[in-house]
Design a protein around this nucleic acid. Structure first.
Lengths: 244, 244
DNA sequence: CGACCCCTTGATTAGCCTCAACAACCGTGG
DNA sequence: CCACGGTTGTTGAGGCTAATCAAGGGGTCG
């Protein structure tokens, strides 16, 4: 390895000082791998750990009394996962491996240290957490107030935008290792209806599909129909304090 | 008055040191009032300000291309509002006064200072922000995966739980100054259907209504049908760093 | 008093779910 | 090598939930 994934991610926004880099590398001393489908953390379990994603996709989700599942968010390499365990002794959601994954776990005490020693990093992590919340709010609006087709389109747009952060801005074809059931659980739809909506998007020439590869054919119309705005493009870090 | 509103809120969770209190008071030199219905901040407007609610109810919401509205959250006295402007130069949502309100506005630069000088307060504010995100996630699951009746019940449960934080644990009757349209915009329903669901809750003896007063008649069944868990009861601040 | 907002109720419609059947693909074991 | 069970994707038919459309009532404020 050598570098830290989180450092790589944060370096997208600020030029890290050497002490800051050291602090981030220390968060990723450990490394743990899980198989596709593995339950990494179960809802209501005690949890002192956060994870940095190194490789693979995950999702965090909740199970409801009626047996259905709501996926809150998909997590990609560079993401900080399990943040909700900061505020609660017990995990508020389950974390599941969508593909085979490699994670770097660290205890929340280490984050406390980061807040003390590196206020700029703390503020940056806070900022990214706020951006994630806005992204969740976008999904809420999507599910609450738009059609099934728009919800699916919106999820695809969000995934594309986030994959481009790490993968390069020019990408127009993506490996999306999600089942239609997972897409449904993220958008509040059934797998059957997701299938019909995806077919509609293909038939209308907005996207192309080949197995798990999805190609963006007409991103403008896709984003328009989805009511999508790319939050990650407009993150403002102007308020951050000076590095120590 | 005399003290800082934010200090009062944070003191619910930790014993503030004198320097911490001073820092918080400095955030709140100003005070501003708005009439019921006033648009305090409009989506896409530039925004460097955050607000602490002193009196009244607000909501933050987004407007969609199809003309509908999604309310993300209602804000009560003691809440920190407009945090999303930290991550973006432009506001991601609108902030609207539900009743007449009094707010304490402060610039986000002051928060940067807080991150530098008072890491424990920074971590606490981060924690509360995470808890809010979990609450948003609960709403997402509610809208994505439960019936109209459960969504309305869930919103009511959340409101009751939050009002009890400041208003006292024993309360079983609440003044809820929301129109059914606002409840619909928060739950992803139409006002007409909200009306029918509320009537159902009354008919089944779960709640009582008298104008804007809502009385909890059978909270166990209400919470059960809503799939509701009270997040605000279980916030854990054990990971915070030492005060400086 | 009238205008407006909000609540309420009824009738009809539309979007998404449910149920069902089958095809394609996968890894596994015989 | 093939047989197999399991998972995922696909498509059709019918049903149900919540939206839409519509009309009227009560309260409040100017």
């Amino acid at each position: 390895m050598g570098g830290s994934c989180l450092a790589e991610r944060l370096a997208h926004y600020v030029a890290l000082t050497p002490p800051e880099q050291d602090a981030l590398v220390q968060l990723e001393e450990q490394e743990r791998s899980f198989k596709r489908g593995a339950m990494i953390r179960r809802e209501h379990d005690g949890a002192r750990e956060l994870f940095i994603v190194q490789k693979g996709w995950l999702h965090s989700s909740v199970l409801l009394g009626n047996g259905s599942r709501q996926i809150m968010r998909f997590h990609f390499p560079g993401d900080l996962v399990g943040v909700s365990s900061l505020a609660f002794g017990q995990s508020s959601d389950s974390i599941v491996a969508v593909t085979d994954v490699t994670l770097c776990p660290f205890d929340k005490d280490k984050l406390a240290l980061l807040f003390q020693e590196h206020p700029r990093l703390a503020a940056l992590i806070f900022t990214l957490s706020v951006a994630e919340r806005v992204s969740l709010a976008d999904r809420l609006a999507s599910i609450g107030r738009t059609s099934a087709r728009a919800r699916v389109a919106s999820l695809l747009c969000e995934i594309f935008a986030r994959l481009r952060i790490m993968g390069g801005a020019g990408l127009d074809e993506f490996h999306v290792p999600l089942t239609q059931e997972e897409i449904g659980d993220a958008t509040g739809l059934t797998a059957v209806h997701v299938n019909r909506m995806m077919r509609g998007l293909v038939d209308d020439g907005l996207i192309g599909r080949n197995g798990n590869m999805i190609k963006v054919m007409n991103e403008a119309r896709l984003a328009e129909g989805a009511n999508f705005t790319d939050r990650y493009a407009e993150i403002d870090i102007g308020w951050l304090p000076q590095p120590r």
